[in-house]
Design a protein around this nucleic acid. Structure first.
Lengths: 194, 194
DNA sequence: AGCATAAATAATAA
DNA sequence: TTATTATTTATGCT
């Protein structure tokens, strides 16, 4: 009385691979086990490069012709995809990833260029501060990381923010800088200077 | 004079800002380069195990005594932490991670048991809101985009949806609004105009 | 076959 | 640290 739930839908790799009956190979000779292994590996390597599914999708769309959405990458990694599609996508991903890793070895900058994102994409801040306000705050911070109460009041007034908010911003800013500067300062090793 | 610890008026921060580097070791003999390397490695290994910062934090809290929040793990990985704290935290993380990897080799189940979470926490099924519910939610949102916990509970009750689902809906709704209004001239601050 | 968005995870203002 | 925002992933739908 085993009624197939699939109702004619093509089963996904994930569904097939969890069935021990097939021994890792589907009826068309596709090695499902190999695909599963690659998918898992792909995710780890992607994360090691610090790339998001969106980035991979966009990069592939740019270099490989057809469109690869974030959803497509997601579904591949989760094996929520038909064996046929997976079989087709696998070599594309494999080739692309290998190249990406090559660029990464030459430096993080090269990778980001290869991926196609902006090299120095500005990070979005929490909404309490507008980007403009952050810029102004940083300018003040560079001049003086420890403003007096009077100065804080004036900055807050200029930016039209709550005084307390500005005070805490300086606190957090100093904290972050203090914590990270020592350890992180060595990251800039490929800067052309000695 | 006494040692000023408070974030408001420590005069040494300005000095820290422009402090020259010391070749990978700080004044207390901590190998910063080693910590940086480990932090990077830690993240990759954590992701390879498929663990979240939250899971690591909770597991550490359970096995190691003091509390380790998701934020703490995040800050360690980002090196947004003092060298002293990092030095203290590093061996704990190293030991824990090694053990986690050991359990993982014995099987995914063992790892999840070690981590202490539910064996296989499934992602919540994506809820579909009825058009009627969306309409009601939007009406509430227009009146108040940031309802209190009490209000959320009431709205959820009225619509007969899970409270958490409603809470997340407001989160995402705020997010969407923010993203779209960014395209237009945005106004983040409704405080007294200048 | 992929968009819209719900849910989950990471980062950060307080 | 905690509560919330920002970002990323996953999935219901057509």
């Amino acid at each position: 009385s085993s009624v197939p739930i699939t109702c004619g839908d093509t089963p996904t790799v994930g569904q097939l691979v969890s069935k021990p009956q097939q021994g890792g190979t589907d009826e068309e000779g596709i090695n499902l086990e190999e695909i599963r292994e690659f998918a898992k590996n792909f995710k780890i390597r992607r994360l090691s490069l610090g790339l998001t599914q969106t980035q991979v999708g966009q990069a592939l769309t740019a270099t490989e012709g057809p469109a690869y959405s974030q959803s497509a990458i997601c579904r591949f990694e989760k094996l929520d995809i038909t064996p046929k599609s997976a079989q087709k996508l696998k070599p594309v991903l494999e080739r692309w990833l290998a190249e990406a890793e090559l660029w990464n070895q030459k430096g993080q900058q090269n990778l980001m260029e290869f991926v196609g994102g902006e090299p120095s994409k500005k990070r979005k801040r929490r909404t309490s501060f507008t980007p403009q306000a952050i810029e102004v705050l940083n300018t003040y911070f560079e001049k003086n990381a420890l403003p007096t109460g009077q100065e804080i009041t004036e900055i807050a007034k200029e930016l039209n923010y709550d005084r307390e908010v500005v005070r805490v911003w300086f606190c957090n800013r100093r904290q972050t800088l203090k914590n990270t500067s020592k350890i992180n300062a060595f990251q800039c090793e490929n800067e052309g200077a000695t």
